[in-house]
């Protein structure tokens, strides 16, 4: 499976993740306004939004997530999400 992080800079990956999160949370924010280390729950993320975020990751990065890989610490913040996506690209 070719993950769509190839050729992307860290900043580009981070911005894609930010857009996914903003869309999932219906947050009225610009990507530059979001601190990547802020807990997503403080942005209003609930359990339903978690689904939308992961579906967004799957769609935009062309990955398929298995429940055996899922750890809720992945979704603590945008930086943890970016770290996870990058780890998939490196695998």
């Amino acid at each position: 499976m070719a993950i769509k992080t190839v050729g992307l800079t860290d900043e580009e990956i981070t911005n894609k993740v930010k857009k996914i999160v903003i869309s999932a949370l219906y947050a009225k924010k610009n990507i530059e306004d979001i601190d990547v280390n802020v807990p997503l729950t403080s942005l209003g993320m609930d359990s339903l939004n978690v689904v939308d975020i992961f579906i967004g990751l799957e769609h935009d990065f062309d990955i398929e997530l298995d429940e055996s890989e899922l750890d809720m610490s992945i979704i603590e913040s945008i930086s943890s999400l970016v770290k996870y996506v990058k780890s998939l690209g490196e695998a």
């Binding site: 992961f54 899922l70 750890d71 809720m72």
Partner: peptide, 30 residues
């Protein structure tokens, strides 16, 4: 499958956790 992060489950603390929707979606897909 079980996430087990909350393995010490208490019946009086059943608030929906963050994984509830996502893991059910994963289960259905699997």
């Amino acid at each position: 499958f079980s996430d087990t992060a909350n393995w010490l489950g208490r019946i009086d603390a059943v608030e929906s956790n963050r994984s509830y929707y996502l893991f059910n979606v994963r289960l259905i897909r699997r």
